[in-house]
Structures are given as structure tokens and as C-alpha cells.
Amino acid sequence: MMALDQDHPVEDLEPADSWALLAASELGRLAVSVGDIPEIFPINYYLHDRQVIFKTAQGSKLVHLTINRNVVLEADGYDDETAWSVIVKGTAKTIQDTELIEAARKLPLPSWIPTVKYLYVQITPHTISGRRFARGPETWQ
């Protein structure tokens, strides 16, 4: 990791660093697009064997994934000195295989809201990228 400062406030992350940050987080934003209309949904997820797994119920999110499986997931975080953002582009599909569903049920993937979510979705990443940013006041030059 390079030192971030006012002269170098942005760092492009190596894929391994992006994977590590994605694995350490559990909340992201799922971006989908149907008929040229983009939508974004907050999701909690779990990274398992470089596959992003999340739970959902019947509704607009699932309808969007059925129409267009191409998705983008963004996760981010920050501390006092830096912030980061990781972007995963891939394809999503509802897990149908009984054995895979049983395996997914054993993952540490609790729902953040008190609703029943019984469908599991898997995002297979095609690309991952990330950036780290120095935090601080804007500078004018």
C-alpha cells in the first residue's frame, strides 16, 4: 500500500487487496438495469469462494435479476484517515440446486431487517477493482 497524502490522494488497489476488503465487509449496493432504467438496492452479502452470496425474497430486486443478470456490486468503508471502494461486475443467478441452497444456509448471512428471505442469489464476479482515498479537506490550487 502506498502512502496517501495531498499529492497522492487516490490509490488504485491490487485485486488481492480488493478481494480482502470485499470479504471484510458485509453491506453493499447492488446495481441493476432493466430497459435502460437503473436501480440500486442495499444488500448484506457474504463472500464465499470468490462468489458473492445474498438472500432476498420475491420482489422487484429478483424481477430485475431475472430480466438482466448483469450486475454491479459496490462495497465501501472508511476510518479516520482513509476511505475505500470496491466494485464487482458480474452475473447473478438464483441458486436452485438443493445442495448449494443447504450450503448457503450454513453461511454467516443474517438478515439485517425482520423479513423472511428464503431465496439465495449468487453473483459470479467477472471483474473486481478498488480504490483507496486519503481523507481530508478539499484543497484549492
Results as ranks from 00 to 15, higher is better:
114 P>N: 08
80 D>T: 08
89 K>A: 12
115 T>I: 15
135 R>T: 07
61 K>D: 05
64 H>R: 09
124 T>W: 12
114 P>K: 11
64 H>P: 10
111 S>R: 12
104 A>T: 04
109 L>I: 07
108 P>G: 10
61 K>V: 02
107 L>D: 09
63 V>C: 08
99 E>K: 11
80 D>M: 06
95 I>R: 12
125 P>M: 11
95 I>C: 11
79 D>P: 06
96 Q>Y: 14
62 L>V: 04
114 P>T: 06
136 G>C: 01
126 H>P: 06
111 S>E: 11
87 I>F: 10
121 V>K: 00
136 G>F: 00
67 I>N: 07
128 I>Q: 00
131 R>I: 07
105 R>T: 05
102 E>R: 14
119 L>K: 14
98 T>F: 14
128 I>A: 03
80 D>H: 08
59 G>Q: 13
97 D>P: 09
113 I>P: 02
110 P>R: 09
88 V>Y: 01
72 V>D: 00
115 T>Q: 13
102 E>P: 11
78 Y>D: 08
85 S>L: 05
68 N>V: 09
100 L>N: 14
96 Q>K: 15
138 E>P: 04
103 A>F: 04
65 L>M: 10
134 A>D: 03
75 A>Y: 00
124 T>Y: 10
124 T>P: 09
119 L>S: 13
130 G>R: 01
104 A>G: 07
137 P>Y: 06
131 R>H: 11
113 I>H: 08
103 A>W: 02
118 Y>H: 12
136 G>A: 00
64 H>D: 15
103 A>N: 02
120 Y>T: 06
84 W>V: 00
129 S>A: 07
75 A>E: 02
88 V>N: 03
133 F>L: 14
125 P>F: 08
90 G>H: 01
135 R>W: 04
130 G>M: 07
60 S>T: 13
94 T>L: 14
73 L>S: 07
134 A>P: 01
102 E>K: 13
101 I>H: 05
74 E>R: 08
77 G>V: 02
72 V>H: 02
126 H>M: 13
77 G>F: 00
113 I>E: 06
111 S>W: 07
130 G>W: 01
112 W>Q: 12
78 Y>V: 03
67 I>S: 10
121 V>F: 09
87 I>W: 04
80 D>K: 08
101 I>C: 05
75 A>T: 06
122 Q>N: 12
129 S>Q: 08
77 G>C: 04
119 L>G: 12
74 E>F: 01
67 I>V: 14
120 Y>I: 07
120 Y>G: 01
120 Y>H: 14
59 G>D: 09
107 L>N: 11
127 T>S: 15
72 V>M: 12
117 K>N: 15
137 P>C: 07
109 L>A: 10
107 L>G: 10
85 S>T: 09
110 P>W: 13
128 I>L: 10
93 K>P: 03
123 I>L: 10
95 I>S: 13
84 W>E: 01
82 T>R: 07
